[in-house]
Design a protein around this nucleic acid. Sequence first.
DNA 1: CCTGAAGTGAGTACGATGTACGCGGTAACC
DNA 2: GGTTACCGCGTACATCGTACTCACTTCAGG
Lengths: 243, 243
Amino acid sequence: MAGKSEARLSNLSRLWGDQTQRTRGPAPAYTCEQIADAAIELADEEGLESVSMRKVAARLGTGAMSLYRYVESKDSLIDLMGDRIVGREGWPELTGDWKRDLGDFARGQRRALLERPWLSRVWSGMPAIGPNMLRGFERTMSILDGLGLGIDDMFETIGLLNAWIDGHVQSELALRAYFGDVDDEEVQRAMGPYVQAVMDSGEYPYFTQVITDAQGPHDDPERRFERSLERLLAGIEATLPGR
Amino acid sequence: MAGKSEARLSNLSRLWGDQTQRTRGPAPAYTCEQIADAAIELADEEGLESVSMRKVAARLGTGAMSLYRYVESKDSLIDLMGDRIVGREGWPELTGDWKRDLGDFARGQRRALLERPWLSRVWSGMPAIGPNMLRGFERTMSILDGLGLGIDDMFETIGLLNAWIDGHVQSELALRAYFGDVDDEEVQRAMGPYVQAVMDSGEYPYFTQVITDAQGPHDDPERRFERSLERLLAGIEATLPGR
DNA sequence: CCTGAAGTGAGTACGATGTACGCGGTAACC
DNA sequence: GGTTACCGCGTACATCGTACTCACTTCAGG
């Protein structure tokens, strides 16, 4: 674990640009952003597990080892992907209404995570915080500023929000996989019997109820998300210092 | 991605025991639990990333391919590890006081996650729900039963709680790594300059504040956790149907 | 303009990985 | 006792991350 942490920290120098201006030698043929984008494309098309240095390099028309001029390691590239995505999409103007702004933030995060099922695994447990993520962090913190919360209360609150979003999207994707009307009916067909057996055993009444409920003509995921979000925001509001 | 899902579902047959009683041939030399335990030991000692089929097998005194009589794939083994840990530790008797029981559950989860930093990566995004996890799910749902919540409200609530616990522990571990007085001072020494540079740039006031605050003589993590937990439980209580 | 240093892209090679395949041995059934 | 199903495990292969190396390109200093 010490080794992994050590590997992780060396990524920082690349993430933060390492602004020693070049003097000699040929100009770099690529940029970190291009490489990250290629990796992102690959992950979008074939999944995160098939993002390899060779394939990313091939997509750029070069060899695997060339990437190491830009990226410390594969883990570093993964971190770069995570930070790149944060940087690519613009943030809407803040309105000043914290509940609305926080809600918009949550909606944006959910959308991003739903768009790329591999993203949450990249974002989660990312000790190497990139510049884009930090900017996003600052922005989110600013939403909570002026509500009378202490700095660590603010930190914990957005931690809570982020954790919830991630967990919610995760379960959203899982439910999709189980009984999704999405284009994954092969999964459903193969998984169904097991779920059915578990339900038939009668030992798991709550699980059974959840599944049968989810199967029914339920309100759409958007509405579920909005409902939970509202509850969460209400909880935050209720525990505000001003009572 | 379809490939990964397909791989995931085949794990279920192993997770659920596949109770076709054996008839012919030699008795199996190992059990799934033994294998999972060996893998868990390995992960505890050397980290999750160095859990390989060969090393796990070596720990059992056998060859890598022998494991495949018990486990569908490496991913399946990882799932097995996750479910095994849930099954290994006993749950305390429920008191009937939902806030207390839910709090105890949260404390237990936190302890388990802190004990094994690799665990949250295993638990997160685990669509293949094992029997032990399902039993735990049922138990947690039963805590919330009788409060007037609908089944999906209950589901969402424990989803929220789980997501928060995971996120909280994650940030707890991250803060430890940055400025922990734990035995990771090499990480601190190498990471410090970057954090310092970010802080000195003056562009990230909130981040700076969080770090300087965390560095100070703060109250211990236990207390932080308890405080947030209390807040979360209060939020749940506040949105109960009975008002 | 020349020379050397700095920095580039990329090829080769190595160890480690997950696992498909197949073999020989073992235990229960007919 | 023969058949059959199942066991443990060795071999082999594709693929992975990346250490090392080298030729080539550019620019600073003479």
